[in-house]
């Protein structure tokens, strides 16, 4: 074996170890909640024995499972609305608008760039005026605003690889605009649309800042409830809740990974 290739292998294994270390650094603090959630002790400490009591508690306390349900219901509807609006916006940015394209894109992206607290204050003000605080639709609307940029980004990426001639071809073959979109464009940009939907769901699902402003005793999302619980009590149910949140997020991310592998294959 030559010196060069030996050096290659060496540097590659160093690189691998380094990646694992960085990965652990990123993930470990988060994973701490997992063992605590199975703890048999009554405070937020590492367990001595195994117990499911905090999960039982989570699903028996309406405050907890109510928050979880609300979060899911909001997340799913946000994913649907943000995907529809974001896809349309991306298509408009892709095909038309001329000199307005740049400003329009910046405007749509703003919620991603403006500091969360500032967005939150704005949304809170509007929600107060319109009576949307502590309401289901208040959460949905606020989260939709935050989720749209993610859909615009992923769908725009898909559209970049889409051959516009196909729409012309479809039209020449007798397909009206709606039919051409449904049968030709949508199937081909589907990966971007689905990815956008997953991101939109995640954005809503773990959103905390705006939700803290919009929440109250009658309506809390899971991240807000977790925050409140940690700051006010030592109840390890919060660890169970966090683990559940983590699981859902991970599952969605794995879905996303599977999707991109499928896309590569095609």
């Amino acid at each position: 074996m030559s010196a060069a290739s030996r050096r290659g292998i060496l540097s590659r294994s160093v690189l691998r170890v380094w990646c694992v270390l960085v990965g652990l650094l990123l993930v470990l603090p988060t994973l701490v909640v997992v063992p605590i959630s199975f703890s048999d002790r009554r405070s937020l400490m590492l367990p001595r024995g195994f117990s499911l009591q905090w999960y039982v508690n989570f699903f028996q306390d309406p405050q907890w499972y109510g928050a979880a349900l609300l979060t899911l219901r909001v997340g799913v509807v946000v994913a649907v609305i943000a995907t529809a609006l974001g896809t349309m916006a991306a298509m408009a940015l892709h095909s038309a608008l001329g000199q307005w394209r740049g400003p329009a894109r910046a405007f749509l992206m703003a919620p991603m760039i403006v500091p969360g607290v500032i967005t939150a204050i704005g949304i809170f003000y509007v929600a107060l005026k319109t009576g949307l605080t502590q309401s289901y639709w208040g959460f949905v609307l606020a989260h939709t605003v935050l989720a749209i940029p993610f859909v615009v980004v992923t769908v725009t990426a898909s559209l970049a690889g889409f051959d516009g001639q196909l729409v012309k071809a479809a039209a020449s073959l007798g397909a009206g605009p709606v039919s051409a979109f449904r049968k030709v464009m949508l199937p081909l940009i589907a990966p971007g649309v689905v990815t956008g939907a997953l991101f939109a769901f995640l954005t809503s699902f773990d959103e905390a800042i705006v939700s803290i402003f919009l929440s109250g005793p009658f309506a809390q999302t899971l991240p807000v409830k977790i925050y409140a619980s940690v700051t006010q009590t030592f109840d390890p149910t919060v660890a169970a809740a966090s683990t559940l949140l983590l699981t859902v997020t991970t599952v969605v991310l794995i879905l996303f990974g599977v999707l991109s592998v499928v896309r590569e294959r095609r």
Partner: peptide, 28 residues
């Protein structure tokens, strides 16, 4: 509008629908 003109068009870069099989392209 083009979809009501009933005129066949063949493009330089074929413009076949990549997600449809040959027969489904032709059946479109």
């Amino acid at each position: 509008p083009p979809h009501r003109r009933n005129i066949g068009v063949v493009f330089q870069n074929y413009a076949l629908f990549p997600h449809l099989r040959v027969e489904d392209n032709v059946a479109f």
